[in-house]
Amino acid sequence: MSPTLVQTTADLSYVLPGTTFYEFDSERVGARFGVWVTLPLLYDQEERDYPLVFQPDGNKAAPTTAPPAALLRDDPINPIKPFIQVSVGYVGEDARRLLAIRARDLLPPGEPLSSEVDESMLDNLPRAGMLSRADARLYLDHLRDPHADRFLAFLTEELDPALRSQFRVSDSGTGLHGFSYGGLFASYAALSTDHFEMVGAGSPGILHNSTVLDLYDQAVADESRPTARHLHVTVCERELTYPSTYQDLVGRGAVDLVRRAGQNPVQGMDVTAAFTPTESHATGSAASWFSFLRECYAADSPTSTLARVHPSGESQ
Rank of each mutant, 00 (worst) to 15 (best):
F151K: 14
S192A: 09
L138P: 09
V53D: 00
R32C: 04
F179S: 10
R133D: 03
K60W: 11
D44I: 02
T211Y: 04
L191P: 02
G34R: 10
E119A: 15
E239H: 06
F275W: 13
R97H: 13
L107G: 07
E158N: 10
L159C: 06
L107R: 13
S172Q: 14
A286H: 02
D222H: 07
G284S: 11
D135S: 12
L113E: 01
R260N: 04
G34I: 06
F167V: 10
Y216Q: 03
V169Q: 03
E93I: 02
F290M: 02
L138M: 13
T278S: 08
L16N: 09
D123W: 11
D44N: 11
E279D: 13
D141G: 10
Q45Y: 10
A274Y: 08
E47Y: 02
D300Y: 08
D270Q: 11
Y139T: 10
T241P: 00
L125D: 02
W289E: 00
Q45V: 12
T20G: 07
A153E: 07
V235F: 00
S280K: 12
E237C: 06
S285M: 13
D118P: 03
S26H: 10
T65L: 05
T38S: 15
Q316M: 12
A219E: 00
I80V: 15
V53I: 15
R144L: 01
L99W: 14
D248G: 06
P126K: 11
G182V: 03
V88G: 04
D214Q: 15
G89D: 03
A128P: 00
P63W: 06
T156K: 08
F290E: 00
